[in-house]
């Protein structure tokens, strides 16, 4: 504690040091967040018409919006699939590049590269792959699954989204897992080897339990990113075919800015916020409990 003696002095420094952040935070988050709740209670015919109090009308409309629930359910499925695959593949990659082979830094660098590209552009790159490249391969090799246009098929389009998400985020999770794997104490792994544990037992009985703190972080990140996914969804499939890949964020954007229904859109956004807050809170609480000491 380095508190200033004079009160005025302290106030001056408080404003000087924390003022800029406070102002920007208030403008970007605090005001919109509070105002957002107010908006859900108002009815506006258009975004410029004066708002009139309408109670919980917007929430009622949101709850009876079947497309909202469809897109929410789809987002839950997408979240489940990405959590499993992104973490499993991210961990496997991290395991492979911490085994001490000579070119491991090269592989780390290369596998992380997709993460540098934003979701929007990434979607366009993969559009080329799914629309143009894979069908060409399928044609030449006679593989029916590749010949189909994945983005035009309701089920395959969903998996196309999952694949692109894995491609984008597995490298990022790999980096987090590498940090965790490096800090697993060598001596206990050696001790278990001497005790006769094979590689699989060492992985499942020793390494994985000690990696729980890393998994807390990676599962939290994949969970949150999946719930609010927008860019990839927008650029790769635009929600199609026939809204079969329309996730919750895109639905909210459409509701608010295409249908210009701010009240209902914001109510759905608040419901999304509540879901994200509860799910991530529960996830962090329970996975923290699984942590063990080396």
């Amino acid at each position: 504690m380095l508190a200033e003696k004079k009160r005025l002095n302290r106030l001056g420094n408080q404003l000087f040091f924390t003022g800029p952040t406070m102002i920007a935070f208030t403008i970007a988050l605090l005001i919109p967040f509070v105002y957002g709740f107010y908006l859900t209670l108002m009815k506006m015919a258009t975004p410029v018409s004066p708002p009139a109090f309408s109670g919980f009308e917007n929430y009622r409309a949101a709850f009876s919006d079947s497309q909202f629930w469809d897109s929410l359910w789809l987002t839950v499925k997408y979240t489940g699939a990405t959590i499993v695959f992104v973490n499993a593949i991210g961990f496997a990659l991290a395991y492979l590049v911490t085994m001490g082979i000579r070119s491991q830094n090269f592989f780390r660098t290369a596998l992380f590269t997709p993460n540098l590209i934003g979701g929007l552009v990434l979607g366009y790159i993969w559009q080329f792959i799914f629309v143009q490249s894979l069908p060409a391969v399928g044609e030449n090799l006679g593989i029916e699954l590749l010949r189909l246009g994945w983005l035009g098929d309701e089920h395959l389009a969903f998996w196309a989204l999952v694949i692109v998400t894995i491609w984008q985020s597995a490298g990022y999770m790999m980096i987090i897992f590498i940090a965790g794997l490096i800090s697993v104490p060598k001596d206990i792994i050696e001790a278990s080897t001497i005790d006769g544990a094979n590689a699989w037992q060492r992985l499942t009985k020793m390494t994985l339990p000690l990696m729980v703190p890393s998994f807390v972080v990676t599962v939290f990140l994949t969970l949150k990113n999946a719930f609010i996914v927008y860019d990839i969804n927008f650029s790769l499939t635009e929600g199609g075919p026939y809204n079969s890949t329309l996730m919750i964020s895109m639905h909210i954007v459409q509701k608010a800015f295409m249908e210009t229904n701010y009240g209902v859109g914001q109510s759905e956004a608040i419901i999304l916020f509540a879901i994200v807050a509860i799910v991530t809170g529960v996830q962090v609480y329970f996975s923290k409990k699984m942590e063990v000491e080396a």
Binding site: F25, L29, I31, P32, F33, P47, V253, Q266, A269, L272
Partner: peptide
């Protein structure tokens, strides 16, 4: 705590205000 607020819950009021 604010880190868990999804951007989607802020964008409509942002544009409105």
């Amino acid at each position: 705590a604010s880190m868990i607020i999804p951007f989607q819950s802020l964008m409509i009021p942002l544009i409105y205000i």
